[in-house]
Amino acid sequence: MDKKLITEDGRRLDGRRFDELRPIKFQIGVLKNADGSAYVEWGRTKILVGVFGPRESHPKHLAMPDRCLIRARYHMAPFSVEERKSPAPSRREIELSKVIREALEPAIFVELFPRTTIDIFAEVLQADGSTRCAAISTAALALADAGIPMRDLVSSVAVAKVDGNLVLDVMDIEDKLGDSDMPLAMMPSKNLITLIQMDGLLTNEEFAKSVELAKKGCMEVYAKQKEALDSHFRIASKEEV
């Protein structure tokens, strides 16, 4: 753990300030077959999300009479990381699929589509930290692209403690060598948290500060998400005319 993660002039290894996001570029409606889709380049993290549904539930016994079933799969491509990852779902991916679903589901009006299923598939093409946060934020756009009624978007970002400093939007090396990692997702205009996880050692005060910083980051991601939706649907509506 000798490698310095903060340079002498108080910058991070990629030149960012502590409270600065990486460049984030969302694209909406990138796939033909999926009912909704979105792609993100979040620093070097690249994720593609496709949404299918609401569609008939398979197998049928999964269907619920009063609401739709939400399923999510988070999956990393074997070539997305330094050492090839087996394509079989790891325990980590299974856990992340669960928390990603739980982060998105509160935003969806599930009661509008009884007996159906909405499938959310997130494929990580390149991983450089904060992949669950990027997947959640991108999936929210894919859901919107699919025309699924939502209470709010879901925006997500991670905060880490590295070399004693709290930093926003964690890249891989900061996650690996840092002292803590805390992904948080929220519905920004509702001010409600839909995902929180943490590992590493933090005092209660440091934790409260991490949460504040994550909230600020989520609001910035939210602005970028809205911008992406705005430009996508503006172009789409022009094409129709």
Partner: peptide, 29 residues
């Protein structure tokens, strides 16, 4: 931790509901 100071070392939210920021900090306390 090494200085015998009490610290949060892991956290996980589960389930489909939401938490407000106030509820989160209250729960941790």
């Amino acid at each position: 931790d090494d200085q015998k100071q009490e610290k949060i070392c892991a956290m996980q939210k589960g389930g489909v509901g939401t938490l407000s920021f106030e509820e989160l900090l209250r729960a941790v306390e």
